[in-house]
Nucleic acid binder design. Sequence first.
DNA 1: TCTTCCCATGAGAGCGTTCTCACGCCACGA
DNA 2: TCGTGGCGTGAGAACGCTCTCATGGGAAGA
Lengths: 384, 384
Amino acid sequence: MIDGCRPLGFTLRNRFRNRFRPTRPGPHPPEGSSALSITIADVAARAGVSKTTVSRVLNGKGELDLRTAERVRQVIAELGYVPSARAVGLARGRTRIVGMLVPSLTWPWMGEVLQGAVDVVESEGYGLLLFTFNRGEESMHQFASQVSAQSFDGLLVIEPEGTLTYIEQLHARGLPVVLIDDRAKRPQFPSVATTNRAGGESAARHLLELGRQRPLVITGVERFGCTHERLDGFRDTYAEAGIELDQRLVFEGDFTHESGRRGVQHALDQKLEFDAIFAHNDLSAGGAIQAVREAGRNVPDDVSVVGFDDIPYAEHTEPPLTTVHQPMRQMGQAAARMLMGYFGGTPLPEDPQVLPTTLVVRSSTAPKKSPSRSPKPAPRHRRS
Amino acid sequence: MIDGCRPLGFTLRNRFRNRFRPTRPGPHPPEGSSALSITIADVAARAGVSKTTVSRVLNGKGELDLRTAERVRQVIAELGYVPSARAVGLARGRTRIVGMLVPSLTWPWMGEVLQGAVDVVESEGYGLLLFTFNRGEESMHQFASQVSAQSFDGLLVIEPEGTLTYIEQLHARGLPVVLIDDRAKRPQFPSVATTNRAGGESAARHLLELGRQRPLVITGVERFGCTHERLDGFRDTYAEAGIELDQRLVFEGDFTHESGRRGVQHALDQKLEFDAIFAHNDLSAGGAIQAVREAGRNVPDDVSVVGFDDIPYAEHTEPPLTTVHQPMRQMGQAAARMLMGYFGGTPLPEDPQVLPTTLVVRSSTAPKKSPSRSPKPAPRHRRS
DNA sequence: TCTTCCCATGAGAGCGTTCTCACGCCACGA
DNA sequence: TCGTGGCGTGAGAACGCTCTCATGGGAAGA
């Protein structure tokens, strides 16, 4: 009666079942008519046991006779039965779905984070439900209503600007939330972050080692915490080497390619000397490189450039960009793992889990070649 | 008894309800004890009507007294009630979730497609459940089981290589599927595609208009349909202008930056003349540009370069890349809209919906400057 | 005034699971 | 011989909705 195509749980009849609901013959389909889709009851009947027993086999709970279990398992395989996610969700009160809220999907490093999160979530048999903040207020409403509808068990979030308070409320009200923190916000709930400050430091150290004493800094958006952390780390490291950053050489950018160009242009217009650039992301670093070259100066010799993020683009600038790698994929993974761990019983850590940045040296940086002013190529801080 | 924090549907008690299940006092919670989460029954009780009536108000079905409806609506607002997605799903037999299966999330244009799909899906009040093929066989198993569990109502898919047959099976068995076709596969089910052939043609026409008579072609992966379509369109257009492509100038690439460099290198090594390059994607176009420049030739004057895709990187190559724009976001939107339409009653179209590519002219192409051989700068096909 | 019909509403089955209890059976010890 | 206890199993409530079918009351028609 029931054959071949069952394992997928979709049959043509099933598909139309609720849309073009046929008049039902009665409360129960006539004895012996084919089931619309295999349920636990079908398995139970065929195996000659109760639904309870089948459920026990499925979930490995309770003690049951080995032979019974084996028989049930066989029937399950035969029929290709898979429990309905909807029904399990309702009965258990959980969906085995985690939500993920992101500001936009088109940011250059977003794919990495997403991939990291998806990998972990999937490998635990969970699903990843995606939400974006692309349509502003309306997006937020949609999202809020999905939260209320309890469509998912936990939330991974890269904060859309200005929604932190709302997310904090969700957390306070019991929704497990893990923030993937790209802006150094340090929220009142579990999060995964990276070492922005140490990243700035490593950029500075690298440039100092190359003998670069007058760096131009093209920052990120001023209101983001990460901008300050990156700048502070950079500035302090230079200060430790006895070099105070020239305030005129700190240019506020906005993470765009264009702002990198503008930063360089500005310095050039003001006739400010600089032998290096630290840009707060790769896009603006790329813009900076182009502007420098168009001004007839060489990268990396005249001006060495360091970026931040290490997006794929960084490999393809001319010359390939030395940059501070942010472990975006790992952050996605870590956040997802935290949430999975929580579902498994491990409490969520209060403190942010911080993953280290690493400096990736490519060809946009090089030692300063015996400049006319300073007789020694080796920078001061390396004398020991 | 019920206050403040309810609208979100999450309370601390609710959260632990099933995990650390407390011994229940009995089959029903004691009379008057606070509900764990507001249900339709709570609303019904408070409004002095039956669950049925509340349901009718929610879904706008059936005829009901205006005042009753108003009263119910008010109670719903007061309590901040939102129907449980799980329960609705079970009762209706649908989840209001669409699945989306993609090979990888880190491809440069994937974010665009995803964003397009998410936007449409969200605006219809659906959710998007994301699956990737990143972990090969295992991914596919996970995915298959979610399909069987009927976790979603329909599927948007960018085909992970080699899974077309499987997807076709799903479709045949009644799962609504729309393919976002990035490789010109022309499957046996609804899909959204783009004009690869016309894209190749427009690239050729543009180069011909610029007087470029010896183009080097760096193709995509040979086994992809899109590679052939792009090449055929390009070749045929040149043929129409009376120029047969030199077979030695057709280099098989693999869509990587590196393969673009290799293509140019190869032609250079073979001492083959060329005054233009048509690369089958932007990444390889970028690599090609760099190789050309490193060989001491100028882009666009000595060699004009046209790419394909129009990913963000194309704006930032040096010089900015002229390329054939693929409407990835629109494709995502169109596919999602098809599926939404189907849920609304419109049947899925049999034929692929084809969205046009457009040529985006930037600075990597320029008219050929009075070359020594040909006295006329204007290409032949423009004489009319 | 008595039907007839429709409109607004309610009771409750059903969706496909999980989980709580209860029960029957058998071995074992007294 | 009769408890006693544990193991394997089953009945059926609960999860929170939707939807079918039944019903009561009033307006309209005879």
